[in-house]
Simulated assay, not measured.
Amino acid sequence: MDVTVHLALDPEADALLGRSPLAALVGMLLDQQIPMEWAFKGPRTIADRLGSDDLDAHGIAAQDPEAFAALLSEKPAVHRYPGSMAQRVQQLCQYLVEHYDGNAELVWKGVTDGRELLRRLQDLPGFGQQKAQIFLALLGKQLGVRPTGWREAAGSYGEPDSFRSVADITGPESLVKVRAHKQEMKAAARAAKTAKAGQTGGKGGGKAGA
């Protein structure tokens, strides 16, 4: 795997993501509750602080948990919640060591069925269905990993030019489109929640001041 990506919008961070399967997985793991480009810059920051030009699953899995959490907490912190994310990164690496000999690429290498690849991704610590589908779409759209049925397995994230997730980010312009889509989704979710709360309040109005 050695491709050009523009997820972190930082040349060195993107270069690592494009050549390191583990870096790509860790970036996807970090991509929650922080800006996308911050998340995908994380693997480069971790590698730098470990004094390496790449991430090593065996090395990270064997790190002292407190020391590794401190490493992610150094300013600028790798994540808004560096302690909990350090634990998740270690759990991911420990899983890869146990099931794939520490080689992240083996999660998808040789897999011929999109549904099987989705299952493998969902088995990874920290990867629920949505995160697994987004990463599957990223693999197919940008990293050249396209087993049969990958678009269908990725759901709406696999649709061409959907600008729904990090899988569609190829530079600053597409980042703006993806961010706008996420804002629309959040606004719709808030509106639905408000409407539901209004209906609930109407039914149980007598208890509101209790």
Rank of each mutant, 00 (worst) to 15 (best):
M1H: 14
M1Q: 13
V3D: 01
V3R: 15
T4Y: 01
V5S: 05
L7E: 03
L7W: 07
L9C: 07
L9T: 08
L9W: 05
E12P: 01
A13N: 05
D14C: 10
L17V: 10
G18H: 03
G18R: 09
A23P: 06
V26E: 02
D31L: 02
M36P: 00
M36S: 11
E37Q: 13
F40G: 05
F40S: 08
K41D: 08
P43N: 07
P43R: 02
I46A: 04
G51T: 14
S52G: 01
D53W: 08
D56Q: 07
G59N: 09
I60W: 05
A62R: 09
Q63V: 10
Q63M: 15
E66S: 13
F68E: 00
L72N: 06
E74H: 11
V78Y: 04
V78R: 04
H79K: 06
S84C: 08
M85I: 04
M85G: 01
Q87S: 11
V89L: 09
Q90Y: 07
L92R: 00
D101C: 02
G102H: 00
A104W: 05
L106W: 01
K109R: 15
G110M: 04
G110R: 03
G114Y: 07
L117N: 13
R119C: 02
R120F: 12
D123H: 03
P125F: 06
G126H: 04
F127G: 10
F127T: 12
Q130P: 00
K131L: 10
Q133A: 14
F135T: 13
F135Q: 11
L136I: 07
A137H: 03
K141Y: 06
Q142E: 12
G144R: 04
G144L: 00
G144Y: 01
V145Y: 09
G149M: 01
R151G: 04
R151L: 01
G158I: 11
G158R: 11
D161I: 00
F163K: 01
A167Q: 05
D168W: 02
T170I: 09
P172T: 09
E173I: 00
S174A: 03
S174V: 00
L175C: 02
V176T: 09
V176S: 05
A180E: 12
H181M: 06
H181D: 13
K182N: 11
E184A: 15
A187C: 07
R190M: 14
A192P: 02
K196C: 02
Q199R: 14
G201R: 11
G202K: 14
G202A: 12
K203S: 06
G204I: 13
G205P: 02
G205Y: 09
G209A: 15
